[in-house]
Amino acid sequence: MGRFLARLMPHGPTLLIIGVFAGLAFPALADAVRPLMAATIFVLVLGTFLRVDGGAFRQALRRPLVSLLLPTLAMVACPLLVGLAAQGSGSRAELTIALVLSVCAPPSSGTAAVARMLRLDATIPLAVTLLSMALAPITVPLIAAWFAGLALDPLVLAARLALLVGGAGATALLLRRYASERLVQHSRAIDAAVLAALLLFAISTMAGVRAQIEAQPVAALTCIGLAFACNLGLQVFGALLMPGGLTERLSTGLTLGNRNVGLVWSAMGTAVSPMTVLFFAATQFPIYMTPRLIEMLVRRMRKENSAP
């Protein structure tokens, strides 16, 4: 099974789309997989830690753009700009709140894994994600309270982030110290585990979404369109901002666009309104569909560059 999944890694972006639509087509499957969401996130973070080169990671942290500018943009500038733009456009208050809360979330922990599938630079997404998660307990409650008047408990959010990232990081350090040779030998198995976790996570995020779409089709389409516009807008902003080659630009775009909305969702608990729940679910569509679009773009550009 591991070898089979490892062979599918180059087709990962396509499989993620299949996972999303499988969760929509088979609600019972999405409901059954939903309890595994937390475990899949842990596997994603752990797999990313295990597969990123430590030297390259430390080198990335020495770059002010990666260690200071991008985390600040992701956790402070982007949610403030999106919130102010939504308010200025006269958007409904509920949609403005949902937008701000979704962009307040730190970058998705699976972005580095997706970047590796696309043969992009995975070091920048990992570094920015980890630093952004460290900022989240401070920035998320403050920005959410400013725009939404919500009182999120920063200690609860910090504890959950520490449990996920700290636990995965500690496990990775132990494995690297005592089983480094085996990790190299079983690198394909790690890739397979990450791919399986991404598929399960994609399916689980669709739990209850089909019923919401059927009950509120206009609102659902509005949320999906807005989610795509926000995600793609942030990706373009990140790609234009980042100096360097194509791989670094696209990796930065993915990092700013794809957010770990599930962390904010779970931290808010019953404070989440029905419209916010619907929008949070809608954000999963661009997260899992844009990698396929990027894959097509990268393949075309590489083909043109290799042509005589």
Rank of each mutant, 00 (worst) to 15 (best):
235 Q>Y: 03
207 A>R: 13
275 M>P: 01
74 A>V: 07
49 F>Y: 14
235 Q>H: 02
307 A>H: 12
281 A>G: 15
83 G>V: 13
127 A>Y: 02
108 S>E: 03
204 S>I: 06
92 R>W: 02
277 V>C: 01
75 M>P: 00
253 G>Y: 06
3 R>E: 14
226 L>Y: 10
240 L>N: 01
153 D>Q: 04
43 V>K: 05
178 Y>C: 03
113 A>R: 00
209 V>C: 01
63 R>E: 15
53 D>K: 00
308 P>C: 07
216 Q>S: 11
114 V>L: 08
101 L>D: 03
201 F>R: 02
97 I>Q: 12
93 A>Y: 07
11 H>G: 04
225 G>R: 07
214 E>R: 11
303 K>I: 07
19 G>M: 04
244 G>S: 08
84 L>S: 10
295 E>P: 00
146 W>M: 13
260 N>D: 05
143 I>S: 08
96 T>H: 00
158 A>G: 15
299 R>M: 07
33 V>A: 13
243 P>A: 10
148 A>P: 02
50 L>P: 09
35 P>N: 04
256 L>C: 03
108 S>L: 15
35 P>S: 11
299 R>E: 13
36 L>W: 10
243 P>E: 09
240 L>V: 11
179 A>P: 02
190 I>S: 12
55 G>W: 00
65 L>T: 14
228 F>T: 06
287 I>F: 03
128 V>I: 15
210 R>S: 15
14 T>D: 04
228 F>M: 11
145 A>F: 05
16 L>E: 01
146 W>E: 01
261 V>L: 12
10 P>F: 05
199 L>W: 00
49 F>P: 06
144 A>N: 05
280 F>G: 09
197 A>E: 09
222 T>K: 09
149 G>P: 07
164 L>R: 06
225 G>Y: 09
70 L>E: 01
136 A>I: 13
256 L>M: 03
103 V>S: 10
210 R>Y: 04
269 G>Q: 12
276 T>W: 00
110 G>N: 11
204 S>L: 07
277 V>F: 02
298 V>P: 07
213 I>Y: 08
